[in-house]
C-alpha cells in the first residue's frame, strides 16, 4: 500500500475513533451539562494530533523513500478530487447548520453541529482519497 494511501487510512480511522468518542460523550452528556465543553474538545484535538503524528511517522519509517518524495501528478489529482467532493458536503452541511441555527437551538447544539459537519467533510475527503487509490491500484 503506498504511503499516501496509508496516510488517508490513518486520517480516516483516527478521526472516526477519536471524534466518535467525542460525539458519543456529547450525545450522552447529562442534561444539566448545557454549555459547550471546550476542555473536552481540546482533549479530543490533542489526542487526534498525537495519534495521527505517531502513526504517520511509523508509516514513514516503513516506506521512507515514498514519504520523502513530493506528491506526483496522480496523487495531486486524487487529492484535488477528494477535496472537491468534501467541499460540496461541507458547503451543504454549513448551509443546513445555518438554517437550523436560525431556529434558535441551544449554543451547544449549534457549535457541535458545525464541528460534526467539519469532521464529516474530512472523513469524506479521506474516504474519497482511499476509494480513488483503490480504483487506480
Amino acid at each position: 500500500m503506498p504511503f499516501r494511501e496509508k496516510s488517508a487510512w490513518i486520517s480516516l480511522l483516527s478521526m472516526l475513533c477519536i471524534y466518535g468518542v467525542y460525539f458519543w460523550s456529547v450525545k450522552h452528556a447529562a442534561p444539566s451539562v448545557g454549555s459547550f465543553r471546550f476542555g473536552s474538545l481540546l482533549e479530543t484535538i490533542i489526542a487526534l494530533v498525537v495519534v495521527q503524528a505517531v502513526l504517520t511517522v511509523a508509516a514513514a519509517i516503513l516506506t521512507p523513500a515514498e514519504a520523502k518524495a513530493p506528491r506526483d501528478e496522480r496523487e495531486r489529482l486524487i487529492e484535488l478530487r477528494a477535496t472537491r467532493v468534501a467541499y460540496a458536503g461541507l458547503a451543504t452541511g454549513v448551509s443546513l447548520a445555518c438554517f437550523f441555527g436560525a431556529l434558535n437551538p441551544p449554543m451547544v447544539f449549534d457549535t457541535n453541529a458545525l464541528l460534526l459537519v467539519l469532521v464529516t467533510a474530512e472523513l469524506v475527503r479521506s474516504g474519497s482519497q482511499i476509494i480513488q487509490y483503490r480504483l487506480s491500484a
Binding site: P2, D72, E73, R74, E75, L135, S136, A137
Partner: peptide, 22 residues
Amino acid sequence: IGVTRQTVNAIELGKYSPSLEA
C-alpha cells in the same frame, strides 16, 4: 519520469491518463 511506481502501474493498466508532460 518523476512519479511513483503506483502511478506508472495505473498508467500501464489504463486506469490513469498521464499529463502531456509525463
